[in-house]
Structures are given as structure tokens and as C-alpha cells.
């Protein structure tokens, strides 16, 4: 597999800030993977996300998107075409008054031929299951629906990678579920690289790879199954460990040997059943 995003000693300091927000990140992301970036507020995770399609340019170091340096002005359009970005506030990224017109905005900017735009818009809306809402006004949709429209707007540009910067922070649990299902499906079925920035550990369960950020550096890097069991370290990074993991962790301290890498509800229930179920 090829590398789609690469950062080299990425340092970023906000204007007027004393300390850098990102402290020399070296990171490589394989095309087609689902990467979750986890961290508390102020850990630098959103700042990292904004570097991945050239919204922010490194203070020092480099960010390469498909080999293109984001710092070079002439690469910017191609970079943004390769890596699409979905933001936290669903209201503030929808440009048009009608759902399908909004989805068309990106491809229109790319100068794509009208009939092809139509096709892409229909495909993108179908893919996020919002096709029947194509003629609706966005402000009348729920948060989860708006966020799916925003994802469709990116999809219609046919990017190879989508970065989502805390896309669920403003949603209710139902909307959160809708968005997570959508991005998981896009990754699994359409092979799009997904980078999900979040502070909810539960949302990382489905990821192939988990990056835990703290104080502008990458603290941990591995699969969720490898990292979830490291409860003390997670808590030290001010992250809320899922209750299921906490439960098994607590039981293990009492002498049980439960697999902390059992991270879904089903796996946890099965593990508990094995430990507590009656023997036949």
C-alpha cells in the first residue's frame, strides 16, 4: 500500500503563542486505512487535521499529501482535491440553500462538466443515504443529517482521503451513530482513507489505527485493540476510557483475566460470559 499523507518534523506555533501547538510530528498514513486521532481539547489534534489539506501551513517541517508539499501555493488545489475536510459545526460549512446545490459546490469549483457533477451529486447523496432529501433546505435537517450532507459535499469531489475534525462533537447520540456508520462504510466499501479526529474513545473502536495525541505530540500509536487496554496511560492523557474497558480492567485487578482488547459491546459480553457463565 502507498502512503497518502506524510508529515516530517511538523511544528506549528499559532501567531502570538509562546509554545508550539505541534511539536515535531512524524507521521505516515497508508492509503485506504481508517485512522482515529484521539486527544483532549488542546492536545493539538485539530491543528494537525488543519495541516492535512493546507488550511494551516507548518511553521517548520513539511506535510506531504500524495507527495505534494502543502506549503507550495501551486499544489494547494490538488492537495484539497485529494484530501477533503469535514468540520465540527455542520451549519458553518453548508454553502447553499438546497442540499443538492451544496453537494455540487465542490465539483463546480473543480470545473467539472455539468452532467458529471449531477452524477457525482446523486452518487454522493445516495452513499450517505440522504438522496431523498436532495431538494430540502439544509437548515431544516437534523445535525446528523447536516453532517452527512457535508460529507457528501466532500465525496462529490472524489477525494482519496477525508479528514473529519470532531464531526460528532455537536451531535446527539443518534446523529453521532449516523455519522460514524457513514464514514465506516465509506472506508470499508469505497476504500477512502478516513482520518477521524475525536475526543470520544468509543468512536475509535472501528478504526484500523489509533493515534493518541497529547501536548502536541503523538503519545501512542497502534490498533485500538493494542491501545485500549492501556487504561492508565489513556487516563493520564485526560481521555475517558469506555465503561466496558473500565469494567474489565477493574475485574482484572480483582484477579480475573479478561481480555481488555475486547472493545465492542458484543466482545465484552462474550468475554464476561466466558468468565461468569456457568460451566456446562
Amino acid at each position: 500500500m502507498s502512503t497518502i499523507i506524510k508529515t516530517e518534523k511538523l511544528v506549528y506555533t499559532y501567531e502570538g503563542a509562546e509554545a508550539p501547538t505541534l511539536r515535531g510530528l512524524d507521521l505516515e498514513i497508508e492509503e485506504g486505512t481508517f485512522v482515529a486521532v484521539l486527544g483532549h481539547n488542546g492536545s493539538g489534534k485539530s491543528t494537525l487535521a488543519k495541516h492535512l489539506n493546507g488550511i494551516l501551513i507548518p511553521t517548520s517541517g513539511r506535510v506531504l499529501v500524495d507527495g505534494m508539499d502543502t506549503a507550495e501555493e501551486q499544489n494547494l488545489l490538488a492537495v484539497r482535491h485529494t484530501v477533503g475536510m469535514v468540520f465540527q459545526n455542520p451549519d458553518n460549512q453548508i454553502v447553499a440553500n438546497v442540499v443538492e446545490d451544496d453537494v455540487a459546490f465542490g465539483p463546480e469549483n473543480l470545473g467539472i462538466e455539468p452532467r458529471e457533477i449531477r452524477r457525482r451529486v446523486d452518487d454522493a447523496l445516495t452513499s450517505v443515504q440522504m438522496y431523498e432529501y436532495r431538494n430540502h433546505a439544509p437548515h431544516l435537517l437534523s445535525g446528523g443529517q447536516k453532517q452527512r450532507v457535508a460529507i457528501a459535499g466532500i465525496l462529490a469531489m472524489k477525494p482519496r482521503c477525508i479528514v473529519l475534525d470532531e464531526p460528532t462533537a455537536m451531535l446527539d447520540p443518534v446523529g453521532r451513530g449516523e455519522v460514524l456508520d457513514t464514514i465506516t462504510r465509506l472506508n470499508r466499501q469505497e476504500g477512502i482513507t478516513v482520518i477521524l479526529v475525536t475526543h470520544h474513545m468509543e468512536e475509535c473502536i472501528g478504526a484500523d489505527r489509533l493515534l493518541v495525541m497529547s501536548e502536541g505530540s503523538i503519545l501512542m500509536d497502534g490498533s485500538p485493540r493494542e491501545l485500549f487496554p492501556r487504561v492508565e496511560e489513556m487516563e493520564a492523557a485526560h481521555l475517558g476510557v469506555p465503561d466496558t474497558t473500565r469494567l474489565m480492567y477493574a475485574l482484572n485487578r480483582e484477579g480475573y483475566q479478561l481480555p481488555l482488547e475486547a472493545i465492542t459491546t458484543e466482545e465484552c459480553a462474550q468475554a464476561l460470559l466466558r468468565a461468569f457463565g456457568h460451566k456446562e
Binding site: G84, V95, P107, N109, I112, R118
Partner: peptide
């Protein structure tokens, strides 16, 4: 970040 760069070269659905 959705590649808007003014009216130049823009098409319409």
C-alpha cells in the same frame, strides 16, 4: 477547503 477559488474556471451543475 472545498477548492473554492473565485469564479474563474468554475462550472455549474
Amino acid at each position: 477547503s472545498r477548492c473554492y477559488h473565485g469564479g474563474e474556471g468554475r462550472t455549474r451543475m
